[in-house]
């Protein structure tokens, strides 16, 4: 299948007063047409920075590309000028943000916010853009779009605003849509509606989706493939089924284990003990070593290479080395599969 996006050895850092924060380190992944890739990880794992790097939305300085390339449709976005990026943003790649309450401009009608990119990228007149805006609002399931298009964001509910955001993002039929925690700020019923909507729209428009989230329930619902990020690195990647049923990285086990389960009477939440590494001075070896219950001496000093477990699954963990002791995933991580059947 044709690759829309190939990210190779991408490293992004921020220069701060404390030193260089290495937020994304040596990250590689790819995305095919019509595929949904979920990037999961906890706060500070570098998933949002990765997403915003793809759009070149990171302020530079203080941010900078240290290394690597982002090949979108065969062209390296890292090398593009700001002016060239303006023609790609909103037209080829668009983005949906986490908080629909703050990501729409409060002093501009939703219609105008949709029209802007249509007028800029597709050369439409105001009238054409207005009509297309009504179609888009209808497409994302906003009732009475003829009236709603002239309203301001504060006249929309939270779920409707996120639908409005999606309409803005889809305005120019982008090849790739980056959704940065699109459901985190919404309540559960609205979450399901938004995920359904995104899935339907993907089928209609053929856009590839990168879904940034820390919610494995969302991943189970929407993703074809999953990349698990930790400490600025991708520690494990595979198809959704592989990650849920056959995860090999202790961090992925931890993530699966910390999911609350329906059949569980225990009300305590399982957490992974410890906190993420300081990216000002990231550990030389595996970033998860300090919190990993199975950590060995080698983990602290050497970053493991990826072990290819199947054509899609790759895991960076010393446990998979033939010299390492055999470790079985904990009970809680296996039960993580239950959410898929939800």
């Amino acid at each position: 299948m044709k690759k829309v996006l190939e990210v190779d050895n991408l490293s992004v850092s921020f220069d701060t007063f404390g030193g260089e924060v290495k937020a994304v380190r040596d990250v590689s992944f790819e995305l095919s047409k019509q595929e949904t890739l979920a990037i999961v990880g906890e706060s500070g794992s570098g998933k949002s920075v990765t997403a915003q790097s793809l759009m070149r939305l990171i302020e530079m300085p203080p941010g900078k590309f240290v290394d690597g390339s982002i090949k979108f449709d065969g062209e390296d976005l890292v090398l593009k000028s700001d002016k060239q990026m303006e023609d790609i943003r909103g037209k080829e790649i668009s983005m949906i943000f986490q908080d629909p309450m703050t990501s729409l401009n409060p002093t501009m009608t939703v219609g105008r916010q949709i029209s802007e990119s249509l007028i800029k990228h597709q050369g439409m007149t105001k009238k054409e853009a207005h009509n297309r805006g009504i179609e888009l609002l209808k497409l994302v399931g906003i009732p009475n779009p003829e009236a709603r298009i002239n309203q301001y964001p504060h006249q929309y509910s939270g779920g409707m605003r996120q639908r409005g955001m999606i309409a803005i993002a889809l305005a120019c039929n982008p090849k790739m849509l980056i959704a940065d925690e699109p459901t985190t700020a919404l309540d559960v019923t609205i979450q399901a509606q938004i995920l359904d909507l995104m899935r339907n729209l993907k089928e209609q428009t053929g856009a590839a989706i990168i879904l940034i989230t820390h919610d494995l329930g969302v991943v189970a619902n929407a993703a074809d493939r999953v990349a698990v990020m930790y400490g600025g690195k991708i520690v494990e990647t595979g198809s959704a089924d592989e990650i849920f049923y056959n995860a090999r990285h202790p961090y992925t086990w931890g993530l699966l284990g910390s999911m609350p389960k329906l059949e569980d009477d225990n009300v305590d939440l399982h957490a992974i003990p410890g906190s993420p590494p300081d990216l000002l001075d990231p550990p030389k070896g595996c970033p998860f070593a300090a919190r990993c219950p199975y950590a060995m001496k080698v983990c602290e000093d050497h970053m493991p290479e990826y072990t290819e477990l199947s054509s899609t699954q790759k895991t960076a963990c010393w446990l998979l080395d033939e010299r390492a002791p055999k470790v079985e995933p904990p009970e809680s991580a296996i039960a993580g599969g239950s959410i898929v059947n939800e």
């Binding site: 303006e86 943003r89 943000f97 802007e116 800029k120």
Partner: peptide
């Protein structure tokens, strides 16, 4: 950020 992500100058 949304406005920038739309490719506006």
């Amino acid at each position: 950020k949304t406005a920038k992500s739309k490719g506006l100058s």
